[in-house]
Design a protein around this nucleic acid. Structure first.
Length: 453
DNA sequence: GCGAATCAACAATCACCGGG
DNA sequence: CCCGGTGATTGTTGATTCGC
């Protein structure tokens, strides 16, 4: 009753609710005012937080609001060590420190364990999925019902038992090995690095994808391999995809880097072939009517890569056509275009650096470090001596042309015109390229060099 | 008399935690 | 890791009270 009074006061607010709470105070034992119990940090003796603990989030105080109105109790009656989640059906296991989710199934009169998770959002997703199965699409969920829209067909087909098993399998993927979303094939190596693995072929043989400095890069390598083997956006099952989609909407963990970069970083990974294969596949998908924005249902890094590939391909085609026509580069009226070989070289280079550039542009800082890009680009090109451009000098020349030649500036603008509305990443990259001081300085440097010659 | 507000009881659900 | 017991909390419903 006491809790109900305070809950009502918290939900309704205003003088009326205060009166309601006071009206119920006659049922209380002792002289503790229910409103005080709600506003003080220590709450009641049974579950009060330790002195000095930060006050719990409060609906009254405008604290973080749980989605779908869940978790009011959690806010008003915090437990020791804060084992209560913001999400319905989710609790932190005191002993293991992991987030677990359970769901009560009325038809069976029992509670079902849905798995243990590192992230409470994953546990909340597990609860949502089980809830949708048991209660239908009108069920109150932690996250928006839209998140699970394309999962309903699957939920209709699968039995509750199978669903629970699938959810638990998912929990194993989330909980063990990597803390990143949906991956159990990223493990901590004794050397301290992160190792990515994947199952390959009919025999489901475990293949090594290499060692990586950080978890995110290893994950990107795993996902790139999965995309390569099973198709873009592929995952192990429908649950994986649904959960991954849910995870993709979360502010954290941060999106992993592009697979291209990840694969190139792998020490023991046959990087070149895998990278080429992945790139080629995504290129093809972009060519086959794939838009610059493949849609939000694909993993972020695959979207970005596809977008980059499509843009680069269009740019190459466009540049090639214009060069063949002898019309220079600028689609928007540049009169003094570069020569055809230079245009092609530039286009090739941009296509080459585009994924890395996108990666940079997609980071929160959105700061494109040209020198860093060149550093990434140089060793690769120096190593690939049979391919043009094959030297650092060529890269520098191309980079200089980007800035020095007005036609290339026009070419850069095309990035924003390819495939209709440019993506945010494209715009960011475009702006970065056009305005980057390194680029300007480099252009001045090379112009001076040419003068000296 | 009627409708709104309040109270009380109870079932359903949730959260926590320890055992195996 | 999973199950299941248990207490706490929430939601629902019906009874009662109150004001118009």
């Amino acid at each position: 009753i006491l809790t109900r009074a305070t809950t009502m006061a918290g939900e309704v607010g205003g003088p009326g609710s205060s009166a309601a709470a006071e009206g119920k105070s006659k049922h209380r034992e002792g002289g503790v005012d229910p409103m005080d119990a709600n506003t003080k940090d220590d709450h009641d003796d049974n579950n009060g937080a330790a002195p000095g603990d930060p006050p719990p989030p409060s609906l009254v105080d405008g604290g973080p609001e749980p989605i779908s109105g869940a978790g009011i109790t959690s806010y008003l009656t915090p437990k020791k060590e804060c084992t209560t989640s913001r999400y319905r059906g989710v609790t932190k296991h005191r002993r293991s420190g992991r987030w677990e989710s359970h769901i009560w199934v009325a038809s069976r009169g029992k509670q079902i364990y849905l798995g243990g998770y590192e992230l409470e959002e994953h546990a909340a997703s597990a609860y949502d999925v089980a809830r949708l199965k048991t209660k239908g699409r009108n069920a109150r969920t932690n996250f928006s019902i839209d998140t699970y829209e394309d999962l309903f067909a699957y939920l209709d087909k699968v039995s509750l038992e199978d669903l629970v098993l699938a959810v638990r399998r998912q929990s194993q993927g989330f909980s063990k090995f990597s803390t990143l979303r949906g991956v159990k094939w990223v493990t901590k190596h004794p050397s301290g690095k992160w190792e990515a693995k994947a199952l390959s072929g009919a025999g489901q043989k475990v293949i090594n994808l290499g060692l990586y400095d950080d978890e995110e890069t290893a994950l990107a390598a795993y996902q790139a391999a999965m995309a390569k083997m099973n198709g873009v956006g592929a995952s192990s099952n429908q649950m994986d995809q649904a959960m991954a989609r849910r995870s993709a909407l979360e502010p954290s963990p941060p999106p992993p880097p592009l697979p291209a970069t990840a694969l190139e970083q792998g020490r023991s990974q046959p990087a070149a072939s895998s990278l080429t294969a992945v790139k080629a596949e995504v290129m093809d998908s972009g060519k086959a009517g794939g838009s610059a924005d493949p849609g939000l249902n694909l993993p972020l890094q695959v979207q970005l890569l596809a977008s980059a590939a499509a843009a680069s391909k269009s740019l190459l085609d466009s540049a090639g056509r214009q060069a063949d026509n002898g019309a220079g580069v600028g689609a928007t009226g540049a009169k003094s275009g570069g020569t055809s070989p230079a245009v092609k070289t530039l286009s090739n280079t941009l296509a080459s650096i585009w994924p890395q550039a996108l990666e940079k542009a997609a980071t929160p800082s959105a700061s494109l470090n040209l020198q860093s890009l060149q550093a990434q680009l140089r060793p690769k090109q120096e190593g690939a001596s049979s391919h043009a451009p094959s030297s650092a000098a060529a890269v520098e020349t191309v980079s200089a042309k980007v800035s020095a030649n007005p036609a290339t500036n026009s070419m850069l603008q095309q990035f924003g015109q390819i495939g209709g509305t440019p993506t945010l990443q494209q715009v960011q990259l475009l702006n970065s390229l056009k305005n980057h001081p390194d680029l300007t300085n480099m252009a001045i440097h090379f112009q001076q060099k040419d003068k000296d010659k």
